[in-house]
Design a protein around this nucleic acid. Structure first.
Lengths: 228, 228
DNA sequence: TAGATTGTTAATCGATTAACAATC
DNA sequence: TAGATTGTTAATCGATTAACAATC
């Protein structure tokens, strides 16, 4: 077994990322990061895979296996140094830098996201907003200038934006996605309740609030049918 | 093979739901429902497992296997009748009735959700809102009365609420969850960026916006490292 | 040193896919 | 009938867990 300290150049070499990491691993990576930051806040210097996993409901083996996809970050007999692992995961996820994000659709939800504080803290910044409503275009909402849909390609290209959030009605979502992708967007966070059809080089994460609530109603009914 | 029409009493018997259906199956069920409703809008009478799956990027076998957990809904040689399957899935998920939902935390996001149209359409209605801010308590936001946290237990019990949405800061989320659960809430949609600790009879679905964006940055970086 | 904990391999578990008889 | 498509079983695939030598 090799400690990171014995060979930093290998242990911290993030370009050695394997061809393909299972998607569940990457989403747990985000959870580890979130949890590690909480351990840091509580003043922990190090944390073991058992402690980190327990907090999230995972086994210690899973934590170690997941991290092992990306390198060796731990110290046998000690655990993981919180600060180091936070830095490593941010590097892997790409949140060691700030990402500027485009937002399309200034309805209730879009406006809320513009004013959302949680983004900044994790390295995201909405720098451009778009809407079809003429009365909004040209104005500034939450400090972000609102542009027309016609300006989208130009703005996305000028600012080299790679990420976009879609908060338009379902009926327009696919057209907006097409437009964003043509402009060069590579990752879309989609709040419209439709499955977007995108080329393979574009990644979509969908958040459908009704759909999430349905998972809850199902669970509640199940419990009611059995337990009570 | 038995057609639903040959024995309705068995095919439609939702109480025959197996002890435990894998979680991924239930979340796909919601996707099937959403997609079926779109087929209906387009005027389709029936749809095959191949057609339904293609739209979502799943194999036909997966669609059939998933549905088979809950009964027999299809017609060999024909496919699934959209209207029937929509009704069946709504019955399974429990969205054939309306669910009243409590919302705690009237920040940007909470307010946006109060005014969110997508909920009503799928059978959800936020009927009670809570916040610590004295200047909000007693007022009405988007037609929903705002109560103090002290009133929470009474309101949840009076209205027999089973579902709640948490949109409070991370630092308060666990305490709010505890309070909700004590009041009788069984399902929580949590927007605070923390892992909630809840008893096994309570189900939590977490939506962490920064975390979703991290999945995108990772994917974008991967693509950049390989393709380009 | 003894105790703790890693990274990794092998064993297990569960979920997806393929195949096909049954059916309309 | 012939063509299409289901529900289901068996085969495959992938992900999780257990176990343990290596290490601090």
């Amino acid at each position: 077994m090799k400690s990171p300290h014995q060979d930093d150049s290998v242990a911290n070499d993030r370009s050695q990322t394997p061809a393909s990491v299972p998607a569940p691993v990457v989403s747990r990576l985000s959870l580890y990061l979130r949890e590690l930051q909480r351990f840091q806040q509580r003043g922990w210097e190090t944390v073991s895979s058992t402690q980190l996993g327990a907090e999230l409901g995972f086994t210690d083996a899973q934590v170690r296996k997941d991290l092992a996809y990306f390198g060796q970050f731990g110290y046998p007999g000690v655990g993981y140094r919180c600060m180091e692992l936070v830095a490593a995961i941010r590097g892997i996820l790409g949140t060691d830098r700030t990402w500027n994000v485009a937002l399309v659709g200034l309805g209730n939800l879009g406006r809320a996201l513009l004013g959302h504080r949680g983004f900044h803290q994790q390295g995201f910044r909405i720098t451009a907003a778009f809407d079809v409503a003429p009365e909004l275009v040209g104005k500034t909402v939450e400090g972000v200038p609102v542009c027309s849909m016609e300006e989208l390609a130009a703005v996305v290209q000028r600012e080299s934006l790679k990420l976009a959030i879609i908060t338009v009605p379902a009926s327009n979502a696919q057209a907006v996605a097409d437009q964003l992708i043509r402009a060069g967007i590579a990752g879309i966070l989609n709040f419209a309740p439709v499955t977007l059809n995108v080329p393979s080089h574009v990644r979509v994460v969908g958040v459908d609030l009704a759909l999430e609530l349905e998972q809850l109603t199902y669970a509640v009914l199940q419990r009611a049918a059995q337990g009570d």
